[in-house]
Each structure stands twice: as C-alpha cells, then as structure tokens.
Simulated assay, not measured.
Amino acid sequence: MSNTRIPLAAVIGSPVAHSKSPQLHNHWLKVNGLPGFYIPMEVDTEDLETVLRTLPKMGFVGVNITIPHKEKVLEIADLITDRATLIGAANTLIFRQDGKIHADNTDGYGFINNIRQNAPKWEPSSGPAAILGAGGAARAVVASLLDAGVPEILISNRTKVRAEALRADFGKRLTVVDWVQAGNMLDDAVTVVNTTSLGMIGKPPLRVPLDGLRPGAVVNDLVYAPLKTQFLAEAEEMGCHIVDGLGMLLHQAVPAFERWFGVRPEVDSATRAAALR
C-alpha cells in the first residue's frame, strides 16, 4: 500500500501564511505532471518535534523549515549535512525510508545559483564582497561566498557583536566594519549583498550611503517584497548589475523538490510568475 501513497510536503513556520513556497512547489508538481501536494503549516515551537515525527506516518516526504524553527530543527534531526552544521540552521528536511529525519540547508545554494543565473559574468574571486547584516541568512551567504572563492568579506551589522560572531566562526577572510562606516565597505567590493530586512515593505529603509558602489559590481538584495528595493534601484542607477531576492527563494527550493519528488525542476520565467501570483 505504501508505494501508492501520494507524496506530501509542507513549509513549517510561525507565521507561515505569507510563504510563497506552496505556490512554487505546486507549480512544479503541475508542470512536471507529478502527483503530490505542498501545504503551509503553522506550528508552535513546543509542538515541532511531535509534528515532525508524525508527518512521515501521514505520507509526508519532507518539509521546508522557516522562521523561527531553523535552528531548533538541528536538535531534532537524526542526520545533519555539513553545510547545515556550518550555517547553524536547516531549511530543508528529508524524511527517509528508514524513519530518520535528514536536515540540510539549501539557502547558500539558492543564493549562489540566483546570482549565477542573473549575473552570468560574475567573478567571485575578482575582489572583496561586502555584506550588510549578520543574521541567519548572512551565515548562509558568507559560507557560500567563501566556498565560491571570494578572497575577502567585509561585514557590517547594526549590532556589531553578531558580525564578530560570524568572524569567529568563519575566520580571517572576514573583516568586521562598524555600522556607521558600512558605506565605506562598498569602495572595493565587486559583490554587495543586503541580508537585512531593511528596505522591506513595512520595515525601516536601508540608510547606508551607496555613493561608494563601483559600476559593474554585482548587487543583490535578499528582500523580494518589493522586488526592486530602493537599494537595488539606486545601485542600478550607479551602473551596477542588480539581482533581486526572489531568485534565491526559487533556487533554494530546487534540491528539496528533487529529493522529495524525484525530478529536478527548472527555474524559469514561469516559475517566477507562479511565485509572484
């Protein structure tokens, strides 16, 4: 009976109603002609382990994990990939046939593939990267930039101690810059990433002066509501190659979908349209 089950997947967080993942995964299921459903699930922290241990018995093949559970799931998972360990968070769980929960983090993968797709001439090794913010997303970005061969990362966060914690974890290729000096990081940077929520709809604006941006630099904002933030609009006016944040969401979903449903989906214009519906 078990092999005739319709595979199910979900995104688990609190809140989760705003998530674009259901539109995205259900689009891929449909275009690939696959059976399956992907749903949003609001789950409180105290119920998380019970829910995760129960879902495989209900036909779930895996789940995405979002705020605030991305760190907590590492305490619950039976197996954790090196990259999830390094980042200190997981966004993707695979429920294995043997009943074990396998935790992975595909955020860094999504970040790099978004840049490579939308700025194909990007040369990570050609100069330093500047990163604004030092939260969970920044950790994934730092790990993947170092892996891609960026020689140096300048990082600035409103609370300096969080940036210093990243330097302690990732080592001497990171340099911490005071938030009031964050604009100065941009002078030599060939890659610039905003990992903060500043500039997002309903959040305060990103007030870092951008006059130091180099024309031709690749500038990425992880915020995708609005799609073109003020930060990206200014960078574009200064001749930078801008990459919006929606692509990271789309690309981080690719390895998860492939593991759960057995087909590697395409990130194309129809995928973007489905996520924006």
Rank of each mutant, 00 (worst) to 15 (best):
V193L: 08
I201A: 15
A182E: 06
L222N: 08
S197E: 02
T196P: 06
T175E: 09
D178G: 09
L198F: 05
L166C: 01
V218R: 13
Y224M: 09
A168C: 03
N184K: 11
P209L: 12
L186P: 08
A168M: 01
Y224S: 05
E164C: 09
D188R: 10
G199W: 03
R167T: 07
V219R: 10
A225I: 11
M200V: 00
V223W: 01
V177A: 07
L232N: 06
T175K: 13
R173T: 04
Q181F: 09
A235Q: 13
D211C: 15
E234F: 07
N220D: 13
V192N: 05
V193K: 04
D178C: 01
G183A: 07
L213C: 13
E164I: 00
N194G: 01
P204R: 05
V177C: 07
G183D: 03
N184A: 10
G202C: 07
D211W: 15
D187Q: 14
L174P: 04
G183M: 03
L166S: 04
T191A: 08
M200S: 02
V190I: 14
A165W: 02
F170V: 04
S197R: 07
L232H: 02
G216N: 14
Q181I: 03
S197T: 04
D178A: 12
T229E: 01
P215R: 14
L227G: 03
V176K: 08
L210M: 15
D211E: 15
S197H: 01
L232M: 02
G183K: 00
K172M: 10
P226C: 10
Y224N: 02
V190A: 12
G183Q: 05
A182W: 02
P226F: 10
A233N: 14
G171R: 08
P215K: 14
